[in-house]
């Protein structure tokens, strides 16, 4: 990590007074570079891309060659993959960011430079967000190319929606990861907590809701509203809504959503996702600048 002080030199020796934007950009660039250099980033990218390709191959080998299309297994499989891999990636990346720096004494070192805690946090957030987007874009882009190459049906618009929404999901999970990271005392605890949160969001809440729906005979309105609490469900519903224009594939609750809110669903999903991105990040920034130990 000897490269660090050199990277921060522009901040320290800038002729103009260091501005917030410039500080954030510098930290972000460093964070992006560090991320790209880690094995974790490449491992995740490789896993995401290869699983995506496997999904595409399997669905194209079925009957995709005949040019029959629908919300086929490909899009469904990719949705599933994003739901599993992206939150895990983003949560662990976020959780280890501040905590590991603190553990290695880096935090004290960096904050000795003319940079505020909020700037540091935001810079790290932007940098890691960029790295995650690179990973998602590489993975989904590769799938798109392979499927087009094989002549399997795939809609370019669907792929672009999918990447964009996956990025939003990644940002939401990254925010949550940062919150964990600020709160946790050790980086191992942070990563452990992140994995627990991932398990809860990916499986726990949905399974609980399913059980609740059966046991309590929830009405579709309540079921829909409760499912919107989970950002993973928001991603799934939003991508289905954007790609299919109707949620009727999701049965009564989906039909209710489409009939009742129509195009307004974009706003609803956007608001939910926005809240999941903003709230943990703001909370993390507040906690980090107020009390967090170095």
């Amino acid at each position: 990590m000897t490269a660090l002080p050199i990277a921060l030199v522009p901040v320290v020796s800038a002729r103009r007074a260091p501005s917030t934007a410039r500080n954030i950009a510098t930290v972000a660039r460093r964070e992006l570079r560090d991320a790209v250099r880690t094995r974790w980033f490449w491992l995740y990218t490789l896993a995401f891309a290869s699983l995506g390709l496997a999904v595409s191959f399997v669905s194209a080998a079925g009957a995709g060659g005949a040019g029959l299309s629908g919300f086929g297994r490909t899009t469904a499989g990719l949705t599933n993959l994003v739901l599993l891999v992206v939150p895990l990636m983003a949560l662990t990346a976020g959780a280890s960011s501040i905590a590991s720096d603190r553990e290695r004494g880096m935090l004290a070192y960096i904050l000795a430079q003319p940079i505020t805690r909020t700037e540091l946090l935001l810079g790290k957030y932007v940098g890691l967000g960029g790295a995650l987007f690179g990973c998602i874009a590489l993975g989904i882009g590769a799938c798109s190319i392979i499927m087009a190459w094989m002549g399997a049906p795939s809609s370019p618009v669907a792929m672009l929606w999918m990447s964009g929404l996956a990025l939003l999901l990644a940002l939401a999970m990254l925010s949550l990861g940062f919150l964990i990271s600020v709160l946790a005392r050790r980086s191992s605890v942070a990563v452990g907590t992140a994995i627990f949160v991932w398990l809860t969001l990916a499986f726990g809440t949905d399974l609980a809701l399913m059980g609740g729906a059966i046991a309590l005979r929830l009405r579709v309105q309540s079921l829909l509203a409760l499912s919107l609490v989970n950002p993973l469900q928001v991603f799934k519903l939003w991508s289905l809504h954007a790609i299919e224009a109707s949620l009727d594939v999701l049965g009564p609750a989906g039909l209710y959503a489409t009939e009742e809110y129509g195009r307004g669903l974009h706003l609803i999903f956007g608001a939910c996702m926005g809240a999941w991105i903003a709230a943990p990040l703001v909370l993390a920034a507040l906690l980090f600048s107020r009390r967090s130990p170095l």
Binding site: F133, A137, S144, A148, S155, M159
Partner: peptide, 25 residues
Amino acid sequence: ATRVGSLLSGAALVLAGAGLIALGG
């Protein structure tokens, strides 16, 4: 008809990803 579009959008995504990583490195 969607094949060219998929190819182009895929390439755009891959380029964007690679560009970001190159920026980082």
